[in-house]
Design a binder for these strands. Structure first.
Length: 461
RNA sequence: UCCCCGGUAGCUCAACCGGCAGAGCGGGUGGCUGUUAACCACUAGGUCGGGUGUUCGAAUCACCCCCGGGGAGCCA
């Protein structure tokens, strides 16, 4: 007999004579001649209540069906006479699929701390909170593909391995197939020549350059995949491996870029609100009481758009005592970003036209000669959630900027070729997927929104 | 890398000014005629993160180290 998923069993409007449910026991309550099993199979937040009467086939197995054990239950789905659930499964027979030793099973019925659950990342998805979280993560990934697919964007698989050591966004992990013995005594150049690719190889820090290439051929594209940073950042918002979404549009300017970013965030927020209502409710109850209001706010209220110069004036004149100085040419600090989003605007805010000194070389220079067409979306509680720009498509301007900064583009002849042959204005942005999840769930530590977090000094599981 | 807070039973935490190591939950055993993170009774369970020092006496005070958390910088 085929198993019925619990989400399916609980969704109907009628009882069912004979179904088979499989899942893990969340708790068991025994009375003298009847036992109640709460079984969860991960398909939804809700458990199904199994009622097992003495004398039922397999009743003697019940004593081994403790918390965490895997069971199969066949029986009749009937309206529940008890409070707390609409349907229950009146068991005709039960089987023990996989026992869980009660003395050593680490999950208890009661709430655990996030810190403890991180030490058992292989079991934490079996808890209500992490089950809900990882269902949302999955739904959100799907919603991203839907959003772009509906708009005619092509999904580009940017490479994970790269031979370029300055994609422009931080420290990189070097990849090698050589052991210590094979490299002993070699210079770095000799070592690179002997290595797998005949040159140094790294894990990518961004798919942007590949996205630009494909935008300048397929038009509208996006990349969505893992990226890697070897920075020694040890904070609740940084991981060494994280997922990044990077759309890129040809024939587009900064306004198009901002429009896309705002539409994307609104669409994804709506998707989570409408498709994961029960899971969102869990986060509203146990993680962040203000979550539903914040999500509705993101979905419904137009984002404020603020030129960097105005943002600086607001910060300088607001009377707030900031720890770091405010002034044109200085980068916005966390405290400034949060003031703008949380206090001044009360909703996500897009700051744009930043001084060129504090932004990357590839960003398109504005006519004022001192700013670039860059934009950051700052979200309440999180800070920067999106960072993007129009790209410098004018070869001479780009080369001048590269020279000015003392960079070398030797490895990027192909990137410059985009500006040599049929160059077009184009724009895009990067969105940190984990940070988006934090924004949409209220979870405050990045290690708790990724299945197996990789952070500085931590590589478990 | 810097600043702050913490580490006591499997988990979450108490232990006041230095004086016998505690509770709830979880586990085990037994009980209970429909329970809702059930309930009742009994019970097992400790290198007080590690080291050094001060003291008649250290979970408690001092110093060093390890680990965890929060914040900052950098960023996504």
């Amino acid at each position: 007999m085929k198993r019925t998923k619990i989400i399916e069993a609980l969704r109907g409007d009628a009882g069912r004579a004979d179904i088979l449910v499989k899942g893990w026991v969340r708790t068991r309550r025994d009375a003298k001649d009847v036992s109640f099993l709460e079984v969860n199979d991960g398909s939804c937040r809700a458990n199904i209540q199994v009622v097992a009467d003495a004398g039922m086939e397999g009743y003697s197995l019940l004593k081994d069906m403790g918390v965490g054990s895997a069971v199969g239950v066949r029986g009749e789905l009937v309206a529940s006479p008890g409070k707390g659930q609409r349907w229950e499964l009146r068991a005709a027979s039960v089987v023990l699929i996989g026992a869980a030793d009660q003395e050593s099973y680490p999950l208890q019925k009661k709430r655990h701390s996030d810190e403890f659950l991180r030490t058992i990342a292989h079991l934490r998805p079996r808890t209500n909170k992490y089950g809900a979280l990882f269902r949302i993560r999955s739904e959100l990934s799907f919603a991203i593909h839907e959003f772009f697919h509906d708009r005619g964007f092509a999904y580009v698989h940017s490479p994970i391995l790269t031979g370029s050591d300055c994609e422009g966004a931080g420290e990189m992990f070097r990849v090698t197939s050589l052991g210590a013995r094979e490299t002993a005594g070699l210079s770095s150049g000799e070592r690179a020549a002997k290595d797998f690719f005949g040159k140094d190889a790294f894990l990518t820090v961004s798919g942007q350059l590949a996205a630009e290439v494909f935008a300048c051929s397929l038009g509208d594209v996006y990349t969505f995949g893992p990226t890697f940073r070897a920075e020694h950042s040890d904070t609740s918002r940084h991981a060494a491996e994280f997922w990044m979404l990077e759309p890129e549009m040809a024939f587009a300017d900064l306004v198009d870029d901002m429009d896309l970013g705002e539409a994307l965030l609104k669409s994804l927020t709506d998707a989570v609100l409408s498709r994961c209502a029960s899971d969102v409710e869990l986060f509203a109850s146990f993680v962040d009481k203000e979550l539903p209001g914040r999500l509705v706010n993101i979905r419904d209220k137009p984002f404020v758009r603020l030129p960097y110069g105005e943002a600086v004036e607001i910060l300088a004149g607001c009377g707030q005592g900031f720890q770091y100085p405010v002034g044109f040419g200085l980068d916005l600090q966390s405290e400034h970003e949060r003031y703008l989003a949380e206090v001044h605007c009360g909703c996500p805010v897009i700051v744009y036209d930043y001084p060129k000194e504090i932004k990357a070389f590839y960003m398109r220079q504005n006519d004022d000669g001192r700013t670039v067409a860059a934009m950051d979306v700052l979200a309440p509680g999180i800070g920067e959630i999106i960072g993007g720009s129009a790209r410098e498509e004018r070869l001479d301007v780009l080369e001048a900027r590269v020279a000015e900064l003392g960079l070398t583009m030797d490895d990027y002849w192909w990137y410059l070729d985009l500006r040599r042959f049929g160059s077009v204005p184009h724009a895009g942005f990067g969105l940190g997927f984990e940070r988006l999840l934090m924004l949409l769930t209220g979870i405050t530590n990045i290690r708790d929104v990724i299945p197996f977090p990789r952070t500085y000094r931590h590589l478990e599981f």
